[in-house]
């Protein structure tokens, strides 16, 4: 390798090299320089090889084949090889270039002056004077009527922009206050829509349920909005274990022979609640661990939820199937401003 003599170019803008005591091995030893040259070109060569592997893997490996990687589990073979070849192909280029810069490019520290960011005083004054000249010529200051009416116009100008957003959605109205639950509506199994008899649920059991006809409502609305608020859970407790329920004083209790029906939507921020502990009759929300005691009016016993889990009053119809005695007495799901 021929040692290129560095010809110093200097100008008022060029940085000045500072005398450097650090000498690289590759600066003094041609053997070392040669070694670095080989190493770096090897890295670039490996990168080329990676590109070839990528193409071969893309064409050859069936997309559904898997490999087993220690600690990482079974995993798509194609993804593994494409990722490693593409990734390493890139990595080798980067490593090679950095190594080149560190070992073979002229690696002298240099120094350059900083210049104050602040403009010189005369420049500032000149700028201000020019601005003032412009301002004066604009007559903005001497035309108060024009100025004020322009400000007025500019203030009203964005109104259309805001107005245009109006049709993003309907007004809330009373939507958040109501669900599709009506008196006499059957409480049916989630998924199968099968009606449920109290005896279908063993003591200590819990089932996910929904109002009869929810799939049709969903179909009709073309969305999952109703599902997001009207799904419920049926639990059956030993009637002696029930401490309290949400029925107002004087009204018959809202269970049916120990079967209780609660909203499945967490009153915190709306996750569906899923984890039931039979022994304590506690229901735990997996999102932020609010815990509700189903034997005690769905009371919050732990966590960030502020309100009890709403209870749905139930009874059975003439065929013995569980039905709602009424809709929810309060809005279900997260709290909102309009809620009293």
């Amino acid at each position: 390798m021929s040692q290129i003599e560095n010809q110093e170019h200097s100008s008022e803008y060029a940085p000045v090299p500072i005398p450097h005591s650090e000498v690289r091995r590759s600066d003094v030893s041609p053997k070392q320089a040669k070694y670095q040259q080989r190493l770096i070109s090897l890295l670039f060569g490996l990168s080329m090889l990676c590109a070839v592997i990528f193409v071969v893997a893309y064409v050859q490996i069936p997309i559904d084949e898997t490999v087993s990687i220690p600690f990482l589990g079974t995993w798509s073979k194609m993804n593994t090889i494409l990722g490693l070849s593409f990734g390493l192909g890139s990595f080798f280029i980067g490593a090679g270039v950095i190594q080149w810069a560190k070992q073979l490019m002229s690696h002298r520290e240099m120094v350059q002056d900083r210049h104050p960011l602040r403009s010189p005083d005369d420049a500032r004054e000149d700028a201000i004077a020019q601005f003032q000249q412009g301002a004066q010529e604009s007559t903005f200051a001497t035309q108060p009527i024009l100025r004020r009416s322009l400000i007025g116009a500019m203030a009203l100008f964005p109104i259309p922009l805001v107005m245009l957003l109006r049709d993003l959605g309907p007004l809330p109205g009373d939507k958040l206050f109501n669900t599709m639950w009506r008196p006499g509506m059957r409480v049916v199994m989630d998924v199968t829509s099968a009606p449920i008899r109290p005896s279908d649920i063993p003591i200590g059991g819990i089932v996910s349920a929904m109002p009869d006809g929810l799939p049709e409502v969903q179909e009709h609305d073309g969305n999952l909005n109703e599902r997001a608020k009207s799904v419920v859970l049926l639990v059956r407790l030993n009637p002696d274990d029930i401490v309290s329920q949400q029925n107002p004083e004087g009204e018959a209790s809202w269970d049916y022979e120990g079967v209780l029906c609660f909203s499945k939507i967490c009153p915190h921020v709306g996750c569906p609640i899923a984890l039931y502990e039979q022994r304590t009759h506690h229901l735990l929300c997996p999102c932020h661990q609010s815990t509700f005691d189903l034997a005690d009016s769905g009371r919050v016993v732990f966590g960030p939820a502020a309100r009890d889990l709403p209870q749905l009053p139930i009874t059975v119809d003439k065929d013995g199937y569980i039905i709602a005695r009424n809709g929810f007495a309060e809005p279900v799901g997260p709290s909102f401003w309009e809620r009293a």
């Binding site: 990722g83 990734g87 390493l88 192909g89 280029i93 490593a95 810069a101 490019m105 520290e109």
Partner: peptide, 29 residues
């Protein structure tokens, strides 16, 4: 420090390929 051309440009440019490469390899496995 070092002038943009060649040292800083080479190191920064190389570093892009390193970062990209590491992300892609991780995404692979």
């Amino acid at each position: 420090g070092y002038p943009v051309m060649p040292i800083y440009a080479a190191k920064a440019g190389g570093f892009f390929f390193v970062v990209f490469g590491v992300i892609v390899a991780i995404a692979g496995v």
